[in-house]
């Protein structure tokens, strides 16, 4: 099976040929299989955003190639819109892109651009709003009447309605309260389960990555530091901390415990697993 996303020697330079020239990403090679849930982590300015904007052809590589589903996306420039329908990108603070009179029309913007029939569009809009957990009653409201969290979910629905094979979300929970965060993330996870699409989630919260993703992609100083399972990434807590990132709090706790001789062979990065392990351990001691 060929990879869903394949990146070859990708380099992108901002302000090329000027004194402000700066490489945003250098020589990135990457292969992501279909159906993965990938957490993208990296320090501010490490090239995460630049990388994801290449995947749907918003930015053009200065050198290197990008294949989506085996297809070189820049092979035929005219097909670049098709690539954007296949690779849905939800930007940071996506609620600022809402513009239509009603929520329904706004969600329909993407599918309409795809040139689908009205019936198909309606069906997708209803499905998308359900995916993000909003009531259908909101469809005829103005998006500007909604609350911040609702607006954000409408904006995400607008991308989901295109039914992309790959869904990329750039910090979808930034600026939301804890309840709103959990809700959006679990809806994304749910969407992943139901559609089997490939998902890339950019996040600064290692806890979220540990909880939801099965692979993690770490960018550091314009380069790909590692792409591996979440478990293997958080094993390298030393080099991760050196980059100014951190591992989940629970991993830190168990790192300290292993220094003291407990659970030395374990690799813990979710609270749930840690609880199970602790309970098992306590039971053993009781006996």
């Amino acid at each position: 099976m060929s990879a869903m996303i394949k990146v070859e020697n990708l380099t992108h330079i901002y302000s090329k040929d000027t004194p402000f020239e700066k490489a945003a990403i250098k020589d990135v090679n990457l292969e992501i299989e279909e159906g993965e849930f990938v957490g993208v982590i990296g320090h501010t300015g490490s090239g995460k955003s630049t990388l994801i904007q290449h995947l749907n052809g918003l930015l053009k590589p200065d050198s290197g190639k990008i294949y989506i589903d085996g297809q070189d996306i820049w092979e035929n420039k005219k097909n670049i819109r098709q690539v954007r329908f296949n690779v849905g990108l939800v930007f940071q603070y996506p609620e600022y892109q809402l513009f239509e009179e009603t929520v329904a029309k706004d969600i329909a913007f993407g599918p309409t651009n795809m040139g689908l029939s009205q019936d198909e569009i309606n069906e997708r809009v209803e499905q998308a709003i359900e995916f993000v957990g909003l009531s259908r009653d909101l469809l005829q409201k103005s998006p500007f009447e909604l609350s911040g969290g609702q607006k954000r979910r409408v904006a995400i629905a607008g991308v989901i309605a295109m039914r992309p094979k790959v869904l990329i979300l750039d910090e979808p929970t930034a600026g939301l309260d804890p309840k709103g965060r959990d809700r959006i993330l679990s809806q994304i996870k749910d969407y992943h389960k139901r559609t089997g699409s490939t998902i890339l989630l950019v996040s600064h919260s290692m806890e979220d990555i540990a909880k939801f993703a099965n692979k993690a992609l770490v960018m550091n100083e314009s380069k790909l530091f590692a792409y591996d399972t979440v478990e293997n990434i958080f094993k390298q807590s030393d080099s991760i901390s050196k980059m100014g990132l951190s591992v989940p709090q629970i991993t830190k706790v168990f790192d300290k415990l292993s220094e003291k001789g407990y659970f030395t062979n374990e690799n813990i990065y979710t609270v749930k697993y840690a609880t199970d392990l602790l309970l098992k351990h306590l039971k053993k001691e009781e006996q």
Binding site: R84, Y96, Q97, G110
Partner: peptide, 16 residues
């Protein structure tokens, strides 16, 4: 900067 961002976001939804 804002225009740039909004343009990218709408292009990502297939705006031509």
């Amino acid at each position: 900067e804002e225009t740039d961002k909004i343009m990218s976001a709408q292009k990502a939804r297939g705006a031509d």
